[in-house]
Amino acid sequence: MSEILKVESLTHTYSEGTPFEKKAVDNISFSVSEGEFIGLIGHTGSGKSTLIQHLNGLLKPTSGKIFVGGEDIHSSKENTRAARFAVGLVFQYPEYQLFEETVRADIAFGPKNMGLDKEEIDRRVLEAAEAVGLSKEQLDKSPFELSGGQKRRAALAGVLAMEPQILVLDEPMAGLDPEGRKAIMGYVKEYHKKYGTTVIFVTHSMEDAAQSAQRLIVMSGGRILMQGSPEQVFERAEELRASGLDTPQITDLFTELKRRGLDVPTSVYTVEQAAEYLRKLKGGIA
């Protein structure tokens, strides 16, 4: 798989040179391959939101470089603009950016800014709406008539319609009820599978990250604390807890089982895996 995104010793300092100076991102490097599903985890204030705003050039690094598809995004104005569209960034609570008269027009805002022709825009709007489960009737409603979950999905569609190579989602499930959370998660996973888009999923919930990501990057205090497969990361549960992050409940359960003398791995992070191990264990005893 080819490398689609590379971050090279990125540092970002807010309000440099004033008493309010704050290093939000501190010398971070990582790379992402095409088609990967990455979970970016960190508690509030760990610098993850600052980091992702660099990926599409909204923030300029204090030092360091960002390469999208091999191009330094700050090497020219054109490259910065290209990065805007190559990296689709869905902000936290994206429903607060809906503004058009109809959902259709709102989803079309991004593609229109890309300068596409009308047919292409229409095609993309329909496809994006379908990807997030919005019906045709809903497309002609005002975005303000939709329910909270629907608004969230309409806003998500607005970014999907730009058909970015990399989709970055900042806490896409925050503030939704369990059903809404599941729905968003499902649509994102499906979209990833169908289009092979690279996804960076930002969350503070280990549970959510464990569900979907192939690789986890854990941030703490503006630095990368650890990265690797979910097994590798959850094996270091103690460190995660020390940095103020939760581990999935099932991992906690297995850690406790092990402490009580049961021979189980502590890197388990989904209920399915857990059931399988337990079944195996039962078979062994019987």
Partner: peptide, 13 residues
């Protein structure tokens, strides 16, 4: 600030 960033991410100029 937030809304401007969000619209910029959708290519607003």
């Amino acid at each position: 600030d937030k809304i401007m960033s969000a619209q910029k991410a959708r290519g607003a100029d």
